[in-house]
Computed example of a mutant assay.
Amino acid sequence: MIYSVLPLFLSLAFLFIGLLVLFKNKTNTVNISFFLLALMTFIWQYSWTFLYHIDKPLLAMNIIKIGYSGIIFLPVTFYQFLVAISESNKERKNIFIAYLIAVLFLLSLLFSNNFISGYYKYFWGYYPRAGIFHPLYLVFTISVAFRGLFLVYKKMLASTGRRHQQLLYIVLALFIYFLAAIDYLDNYGLQLYPMGIFFVFTSLCIITYSIVKHNLMDINVFIRRSTVYGLLFIVIMSSFVYAHLNSGNIWVFIGQTTLAIVICSIALYKYSQYEIERDRKSAKIMQSEYERQLEYRTILDGVRNAVFGFSYALHKPPSIQFDIIKNDTDIDFKTSILNTSGTQNAGEINDQKQDIIA
């Protein structure tokens, strides 16, 4: 169905950008937290790709649980990324608490009907029905999201230059991403096509722009080289998935597409390592060239100083320095004569003394 196309494209796009950021620096907390946010977005939208397409109630309920497993952790990873961006180390304890709360919601989802009580059948396909615990989850989502946005906004006001621009785009992108929460209305029976996907897509565009334009997360050079490969990956995978949605066993197909995504992810990782190594070698070559040029310049400066400095000393005019000490009754002169070309007579020195006294 046509309603599955955009979730499919968006899920693969977020997976690609998330892996790209992670592979650029696998130890940086900002990169890791952004990857987790992108991964949860992928699970959410990729599951909905199948949910909007199938017509089997039991299978729909299983896919809903898979998709909502990612949705439950969206506000936590959202908050974790904002904490990492704002460098708010004091919030780490709150991140741990947020994960614990999310795990409790996950257990309720998997082992009871209190979180998701069933599904609705809308014109675009199946959609989850909110259970009695779902309103608590909404309160939790709003709380951690606005807390994270506040931390980044405060950090942005205290920053300047390129860092200020980076944080500005982050706040804008993730605020728009948060507007995707409008989709929760469908969990309560409002039959409105989930418009949140357009907010998510807009936020992805802003994040990508800030990476390319403002070197967000230090991957601008890499992403420029990888854009063509990324678009090719997304188009091929989207075509592959959508072309096979109508054929064969759904679980076999899910296994095939998952395997294809894993293979593409490994290929992307290998390519990213190649790019990083090439950048490292290029930087090393440039550093060596700079040091060689600096060495040549040092030698030339030494030769110039030896030749022209000596010549300057031979032709340097005589100079006289007076240290004037003023007493109550007279002025005493201490004269230091620096004469490299000859001597001065006493009359010339006395004339200069009189000029200074005057």
Rank of each mutant, 00 (worst) to 15 (best):
G125W: 00
Y126P: 01
Y126I: 08
Y126W: 07
Y127K: 03
Y127V: 07
R129F: 05
A130Y: 02
G131D: 04
F133V: 08
P135G: 14
P135I: 09
L136K: 01
L136T: 07
Y137V: 01
L138P: 00
L138D: 03
L138E: 04
L138Q: 05
T141G: 09
I142P: 01
S143R: 05
S143F: 15
S143G: 04
V144H: 02
A145N: 06
F146A: 10
L149M: 11
F150N: 14
F150A: 14
F150Y: 11
V152D: 01
K154F: 14
K155L: 06
K155G: 05
K155Q: 11
M156Y: 03
L157E: 15
T160Q: 12
T160I: 12
G161I: 13
G161K: 12
R162A: 12
R162K: 12
R162N: 14
R163N: 15
H164M: 04
Q165I: 12
Q165H: 09
Q165V: 14
Q166C: 07
Q166A: 10
L167T: 02
L167S: 01
L168M: 14
L168G: 09
Y169L: 06
Y169Q: 06
Y169W: 10
I170N: 03
V171I: 10
A173Q: 01
A173Y: 00
A173F: 00
A173R: 00
L174A: 07
F175D: 03
F175M: 12
F175I: 05
I176Y: 04
Y177N: 07
F178Q: 05
F178E: 03
F178T: 03
L179P: 03
L179D: 04
A180V: 02
A180R: 00
A181W: 04
A181R: 01
I182K: 03
I182E: 13
D183Q: 08
Y184D: 04
Y184H: 08
Y184K: 07
L185P: 00
D186I: 00
D186K: 02
